[in-house]
């Protein structure tokens, strides 16, 4: 549970991240707002409380690693990285533009600080996290942790289950998988397209510790992370129940907002929903 001051601060950060997601995708004219909005609260708690990192020294050798396996949600990651001070805020508005370090999906080679690895082809991030966690645990004897952020739709990829099997097999208690269970994918509801549930039972049977929580309740998110770090001998799966498009009224629970940017009218409505003045949408845009 967070103290009142922290809760208020985190709530403000998450609200700004949501605004940045809308502003970025609106000015890009494309992108994935739905699954970015659903992880804004989770990323806030992770980056501002649990992650051991130094934004001013992004390659710090003792840092924890974050891998956004659901790479299409990068507007949320770019926003939280800017918020944490990894790079200048104004660069956010170059998202998806030619020559930008903020590619349509995270690109390690473009050199944006805080991007550990390229992702976007779904299903690959957890395996990378497993390898890094094994290196830290079995070779470096270090307590560095690895966080992998997965989409629920992404869990239809077979490779995810190979990685889940490996992480359980190797007892990776320095690995935390974060599942953004927003229940939607491009073609509709996840259980209708291809059911992945029950996730807790599945994780448990692969020797993981599943922890379920409301992914928009900052206290619940905080408790879930705190619990995850206590687990020994096996990896933790934080299954966060979230709402795709959370915070923007017309986007919530609508599959169509998976990979589409709002037009001007809708962007302005979203800005209003998030409690920002209309002119903020165009501020600092050149």
């Amino acid at each position: 549970m967070l103290d009142e001051k922290t809760r208020e601060r985190f709530s403000e950060i998450a609200r700004r991240i949501r605004f940045d997601i809308i502003k970025m995708t609106y000015h890009a004219g494309s992108g994935h707002p739905g699954g970015s909005l659903s992880i804004a609260d989770i990323l806030t708690v992770l980056y501002f409380k649990y992650l051991r990192h130094k934004p001013e020294n992004p390659n710090w050798e003792e840092r924890d690693i974050v891998i956004l396996s659901k790479g299409h949600a990068c507007p949320a990651l770019y926003a939280v990285l800017a918020e944490a001070g990894y790079y200048p805020r104004e660069e956010m508005w170059t998202l998806r533009k030619f020559g930008s370090r903020l590619q349509g999906h995270p690109a390690k080679d473009k050199g944006l600080p805080g991007i550990e690895v390229s992702t976007g082809s779904l299903g690959q991030g957890l395996s990378i996290a497993v390898g890094a966690a094994m290196a830290f645990k079995y070779m470096d004897n270090s307590d560095r942790r690895v966080y992998a952020i997965l989409g629920d739709g992404e869990m239809q990829e077979g490779q995810i289950w190979e990685a889940i099997m490996a992480a359980g097999h190797y007892h990776l208690d320095n690995l935390v998988a974060i599942v953004d269970n927003n229940n939607l994918q491009i073609d509709g509801f996840v259980p209708d397209v291809m059911n992945i549930h029950p996730l807790p039972d599945k994780f448990r049977s692969f020797n993981w510790e599943p922890i379920e929580a409301d992914g928009h309740d900052l206290d619940a998110i905080d408790d879930a992370f705190a619990k995850a770090l206590e687990i020994r001998g096996k990896p933790a799966a934080l299954i966060f129940h979230t709402i795709k498009g959370r915070g923007v009224s017309y986007m919530e629970n609508e599959a169509q907002w998976h990979g589409k940017a709002p037009n001007r009218e809708l962007a302005l409505r979203a800005v209003q929903d998030l409690g920002f003045p209309a002119e903020a949408l165009d501020r600092d845009i050149v």
């Binding site: 690693i65 690895v117 395996s127 990378i128 390898g131 890094a132 070779m139 990685a163 099997m165 490996a166």
Partner: peptide, 28 residues
């Protein structure tokens, strides 16, 4: 033996694991 890790019959994950080791500064 301490530096050999089996991915089992799971090549996609095996490549990913190797990538993770490389990310952690190893030659994988």
């Amino acid at each position: 033996p301490d530096r050999f890790f089996n991915a089992g019959i799971a090549e996609q994950n095996g490549v990913g694991m190797a990538a993770g080791f490389a990310l952690a500064g190893k030659i994988a």
